[in-house]
Amino acid sequence: MKKKRKKKLGRETAWFWFFISPWIIGFCIFTAFPMLASFYYSFTNWDMFQAGSFVGLDNYKKLLGEEMFFKAVYNTFFYAFFYVVLSTLLSLFVAVLLNYPLKGRRIFRTIFYIPTLVPVVVSALLFFRVFAPQGPVNAALGFFGIEGPTWFFSETWSKPALIIMSLWGLGTAFILLLSGLQGIPGELYEAARIDGSGAWAEFRYITVPMLSPVIFYNVVMGIINSLQVFTQVYVIGTNPLMPGGSTGSGGGPGNSLLSIVQLLYIKGFRDYKMGYASAIAWVLLIIILIFTMLIFKSSALWTYYEEERK
């Protein structure tokens, strides 16, 4: 009996490896190998054409001495901070609002989710027009007597324009929060109401704690994604009307849009400094790792899981 079971287990294990093998093989070939290769290349001056030579830590030293890199880090942090904070607040606000039994709330939910389905490239092209110096946004501001900035053409306003554009696509976070809201048992609110709580207290002491795991997930994904912001920056920055746009520098006016991944792309795929670009990639990985770890470590303080309740 025992022997037979062991044999069955062995066969099950074999099947396990068999079914998981496409993923493992794919991971090894398409993720692990390129990652290890890029780690190696970050210590070389490989340019895609000639086999590079080993240069030790030169790429990293050069990177940490380059003004452009710190500019890119600043821009990326600026974008990530405001995007994550604003998208978290806004998506929570919208989700709570559309969880009330309003008339036509299904239509509104759809409306808020639809922008997520628009490819980033398309929305970037669209917003280039929306934020044109005499575009709809500035026309609306002009109605209130405000003379709007030149947005993407201004060093000061290019990043805010990018953030507003990205906030248009907060549908994914919103949908997750909405399903989280629908999972909160009504008894909790009932009990609170019997105790005489107000709407704010319900939101503060029931809704937010119950949603905190979803918020946590949104924040982590938001940070990881926004630190890697690229597509929007690339599309806007390489528009031929942008300074340096026609040659793919793509950093916007005064490099005020240049993100870390955009810099990586320029160095790697325009200047063919693959070793240098690999070094940027690894520094970015470390930055993302640090932020993600900080969020994870701090999560115990502000997320609430029912199962953990003692």
């Binding site: 092209l125 280039f128 027009r129 044109a132 110096p133 030149t150 993407f152 053409f153 009307l241 942008m242």
Partner: peptide
């Protein structure tokens, strides 16, 4: 370039 931008992204 700002004036061109009023004609669209491909102007």
């Amino acid at each position: 370039r700002e004036e061109y931008a009023n004609f669209g992204s491909g102007a």
